[in-house]
């Protein structure tokens, strides 16, 4: 499941219950009364141990020069060499830069479009029309990039549908997939296209909660439609916007693996290669011969570690700025 999507839903659950004062607990009676709470956690604990922690020794691969032939035990330890190899390669910096800028671009543009879309769709009175538009715009969210990618390569080609429109205005065709300067924007644009409808769902749900009397009062005061949107609707979802922005911080090192994989090519590596594609190329496919599993694991570990910290920070920020407790 796409974690960022779920996170977007989180906010609609209410704020956390107040913390309970720390009274002295008689553990004996506590367990007698509350044992089901612990029993209920058993499946999750077993599942975590078997499927999460048991394979986690694989992280040690990052500190070895792993050969699938030798197996784990016989592969030599190399300390932090895999990490230093990554950072000393010419690719570390551009890849980090690309990853962060593409991810930030997707978050910012995606949020803005989703919010604007929600604001305007909220103005639509016809219930049927609203629902139809909503269904149509969320459709793409449910399809994987593997399926959409091939289609997009065609549509964005020099003679593709989009460029036919561009050239009909007498402009030069845009090289969406082969101009390094344009490519990140292509990624951002396509991601926004695919996800804005879905992103708007949460805002639309929140908008229905704004007190209608506010609008009426504003209308009486002579506020026009745009003024109402700006002064009532927008503030009504302000907290939500802050919250979503905070939470999206956790995804800043994931710029969309599948999307980039199906759309990029060597010409746009300079601006389009991201951490995930790098890990995939190095660690799973390998360039001519064997995949460098250890290097892939090391970079993946870095990504996971930083990602974990970022998520914790994002939860803290959400708590601080939107007064929302995720945990």
């Amino acid at each position: 499941m796409d974690s960022s999507v779920v996170l977007k839903e989180v906010e609609l659950a209410p704020p956390a219950a107040p913390k309970v004062g720390r009274a002295k607990i008689n553990w004996r009676t506590h367990f007698q009364q509350h044992w089901p709470l612990y029993v209920m956690l058993i499946p999750a604990i077993v599942s975590m141990i078997l499927f999460r922690f048991y394979p986690m020794w694989g992280i040690l691969f990052a500190f070895k020069k792993y050969s699938p032939v030798a197996g784990f035990a016989k592969s030599p330890w190399v300390g932090l060499k895999n990490f230093s190899r990554f950072f000393s390669s010419d690719y570390a910096l551009p890849i980090l830069r690309n990853t962060i800028s593409i991810a930030v671009g997707k978050i910012v543009v995606g949020q803005i479009v989703a919010i604007l879309f929600a604001l305007f769709l909220n103005e639509v009175r016809s219930h049927f029309f609203k629902r139809t538009v909503q269904t149509m715009t969320t459709l793409a969210h449910f399809l994987s990039w593997i399926i959409i990618g091939g289609m997009m390569v065609q549509i964005l080609s020099t003679k593709g549908a989009v460029n036919q429109i561009v050239t009909s205005f007498g402009l030069e065709p845009i090289r969406f997939l082969s101009d390094p300067a344009v490519f990140p924007w292509t990624l951002i644009g396509l991601e926004t296209w695919k996800e804005f409808g879905w992103g708007a769902v949460i805002y639309l749900a929140a908008l229905t909660n704004i007190n209608p009397e506010l609008y009426e009062a504003a209308a009486v005061d002579g506020a026009d439609r745009f003024q109402r949107m700006r002064h009532i609707t927008l503030p009504g979802i302000k907290t939500l916007i802050i919250l979503m922005s905070c939470l999206s911080l956790g995804g800043i090192l994931s710029a969309g693996f599948e999307q980039v994989l199906v759309l990029y090519n060597p010409v746009v590596y300079k601006t389009g290669d991201i951490l995930d594609t790098y890990i995939y190329r190095v660690g799973l496919v390998g360039s001519g011969g064997m995949p460098d599993y250890s290097l892939g694991t090391a970079v993946g570990l870095l990504q996971g570690g930083v990602g974990f910290v970022l998520i914790l920070v994002s939860y803290w920020l959400a708590d601080k700025f939107a007064n929302y407790r995720v945990f």
Binding site: L50, W57, Y293
Partner: peptide, 18 residues
């Protein structure tokens, strides 16, 4: 711990072996 377990994986080969 649950959050942590969601963030890290052992990677393909160890998971397969598990």
């Amino acid at each position: 711990i649950m959050l942590f377990s969601g963030m890290f994986g052992g990677g393909l080969i160890p998971t397969y072996m598990a």
